[in-house]
Nucleic acid binder design. Structure first.
Length: 341
DNA sequence: AATTCGGGGTC
DNA sequence: GACCCAGAATT
């Protein structure tokens, strides 16, 4: 990894001049860094900005996060995805309040022990918020290192990841590890782009990057895997009674756990309530990482207010402000709103 | 080591 | 379509 040794100085200089202005950088308290890092897991900066602002506005402290109602927390997370992140955030907040006296733990090992925090996030928080000299190796960093060093190892494999992490640890500037880690990610996000289209002319590693010199940026990094996606046909029931719509809570474990949904079943499925009228509603499609839902909908005028146990009637205001409904059902939002007026 | 967990931007 | 994103937890 000889070429990596030349990286720190030009990288830090580049970062000083090119760092984006991001809300979690203006006041990098451990709480701010933590919330931002969890939201940013597998999620682009642009998608996080509004959620981050709303979240900190309502839950400005670890104590507030520890105490908030779970349904309110899910509502704040609605649409961001990977909802276990929100639940783990609260578990960790309660651990911090109860076991750490409300003070965020300040060592890599203690941070790593918290729910929802793995090697990457522990390294990010420890280095950015506490100045600890540990690497933070995310997807951006793996791509940058693979290209600069010309490493053909599969970056999806733990062995490749740990090799690159060790190489980074050996060159990590002890004085400013947080800036170095952020600079590497920033470089990956804005210059050393995926899809074989990096902006090498703007790169501080231009002179010594193995992939650029060898014209192999299109072949690096090497990444295997890609599980096939299964398709599920589902029927969604948009059930109305007197300007309200029926919702039910999803199971506590698994996909979209504990979020609210319009009742739906694998197609074909019979109407789950006594109906005064039935009509076809809009179709919808939603693509998860590992599943594709192809949905048709049925608009149901319920014969009465009776619902199966656990289901609820929601009016337009409750639907907007109270119930966390995942974006998988966004195709039906307009049709539902129309009938709740 | 492989799968499960969302959702959206980008090519 | 395919890839990827400031990944972690579970199996």
């Amino acid at each position: 990894m000889k070429s990596l040794e030349q990286l720190p100085l030009p990288l830090l200089e580049w970062y000083r001049d090119n760092a984006r202005t991001l809300p979690w950088r203006s006041d990098p308290t451990p709480y701010h860094v933590w919330i931002s890092e969890i939201m940013l897991q597998q999620t682009r900066v642009a998608a996080v900005l509004d959620y981050y602002r709303r979240f900190l506005e309502e839950l400005p402290t670890v104590q507030a996060l520890a105490a908030v109602e779970e349904d309110r927390l899910l509502k704040l997370w609605q649409g961001l995805g990977y909802y276990n992140r929100a639940r783990n955030l609260q578990k960790a907040a309660r651990t911090i309040v109860e076991d750490f006296g409300g003070r965020f733990p300040d060592t890599y090992e203690a941070i790593l022990s918290l729910p929802g925090i793995g090697e990457y996030t522990a390294g990010a928080i420890a280095s950015i918020a506490f100045g600890r000299p540990v690497p933070a190796v995310d997807g951006n960093v793996l791509r940058v290192v693979a290209r600069i060093t010309g490493d053909r190892g599969d970056i999806a494999r733990p062995e490749t990841k740990s090799r690159m992490r060790a190489a980074l640890l050996s060159i990590l500037p002890q004085s400013m590890p947080g800036d170095f880690n952020q600079a590497l990610m920033e470089l990956g996000a804005t210059v050393c782009l995926p899809n074989g289209a990096p902006l090498c002319r703007r790169c501080p590693a231009h002179a010594f990057c193995a992939a650029r010199i060898g014209e192999r940026t299109g072949e690096l990094p090497v990444k295997g895997g890609k599980a096939a996606r299964r398709v599920e046909e589902r029927t969604v029931f948009l059930i109305f009674f007197e300007n309200r719509v029926a919702l039910r809570r999803r199971p506590a474990r698994g996909l979209l756990a504990k979020l609210w949904e319009y009742p739906n079943e694998p197609a074909p499925a019979p109407c789950p309530v006594e109906a005064a009228a039935l009509a076809d509603g809009p179709a919808g499609k939603h693509i998860f990482s590992h599943i594709e839902w192809r949905m048709r909908s049925v608009v149901v005028q319920a014969a009465g207010p009776e619902l199966p146990p656990g289901w609820v009637w929601a009016d337009g205001e409750a639907l907007r402000a109270e119930y966390a409904v995942p974006n998988a059902f966004r195709s039906f939002a307009k049709a539902v709103e129309e009938r709740l007026k």
